[in-house]
Simulated assay, not measured.
Amino acid sequence: MSGGHYCSVLVTGANRGIGLEMVKQFLGLPKPPQKVFATCRDPQGSSAQALKTLASKHPNLVILKLESTDEASIKAAAKEAEAHLAGNGLNLLVNNAGIMPPSTLESVTQEDMLSVYRVNVLGPMMITKAFLHLLTLAAKKSSGKELSCSKAAVINVSSIGGSIGNAPSMDTFPVVAYRCSKVALNMLTRCQALEFNKRGILCVALHPGWVKTDLGTDKAELTTEDSVRGILRVFSCLSEEQNGRVVDWEGRIVPW
Rank of each mutant, 00 (worst) to 15 (best):
T172D: 15
G4N: 10
L134D: 03
P102K: 13
F235V: 03
V247F: 04
V119N: 07
P174F: 08
K52C: 11
W256T: 06
S169H: 07
A81H: 01
S68A: 14
K182W: 07
Y117A: 13
A72N: 14
G161Q: 03
Y178N: 04
Y117H: 12
D248T: 06
H84F: 13
S150L: 01
S239R: 05
G216D: 04
S68V: 15
A83H: 10
A48R: 02
I74F: 05
V94H: 04
K212S: 08
A81R: 05
E80K: 15
V94I: 15
P33F: 01
P30E: 13
S227Q: 06
V116W: 00
M22G: 10
P255L: 08
F173A: 13
M170R: 08
I99A: 09
S227F: 04
G17M: 06
P102H: 08
A72L: 11
K79G: 14
E225T: 12
K219P: 00
G28P: 00
T213F: 02
W249P: 00
E80M: 07
R245Q: 15
M1C: 09
A48Q: 06
T217I: 02
L10C: 08
S163P: 02
L222F: 09
R190F: 09
A83Y: 01
A177T: 03
E21K: 11
L51A: 08
E240Q: 12
K198I: 09
K52N: 15
I201N: 04
K75C: 13
C203G: 04
G13Y: 03
F131M: 01
L134V: 05
L90I: 06
S8P: 09
W256C: 11
E111M: 13
P168M: 10
I160M: 15
N186Q: 02
A130N: 04
R252P: 06
L122N: 14
V23W: 08
P43M: 01
S107C: 01
S46N: 12
M187H: 12
C180Q: 12
A153Q: 01
D214W: 02
L147H: 05
V247P: 01
I99S: 05
E82T: 07
T104S: 15
A193R: 06
G209S: 08
G230Y: 01
V211Q: 02
L93Q: 02
V62A: 13
I99T: 14
R199I: 00
E111V: 10
C180H: 10
F235T: 04
A72W: 00
V175E: 07
H58R: 07
T224Y: 02
C40F: 01
G45W: 11
R252L: 12
V23K: 03
L51D: 09
P124Q: 10
V254Q: 03
A76E: 14
N243I: 01
G13R: 00
P255K: 06
D248V: 03
A48L: 05
T189C: 11
Q49C: 01
M113Y: 12
V204N: 03
G244L: 07
M125W: 11
L20G: 07
A152M: 00
G13M: 09
R245P: 00
A130Q: 05
L61P: 05
V9T: 01
A78Y: 06
L10P: 05
S46P: 06
G230A: 02
T12D: 03
V108H: 08
H84D: 11
S56E: 14
V246Q: 11
A72V: 13
T69L: 07
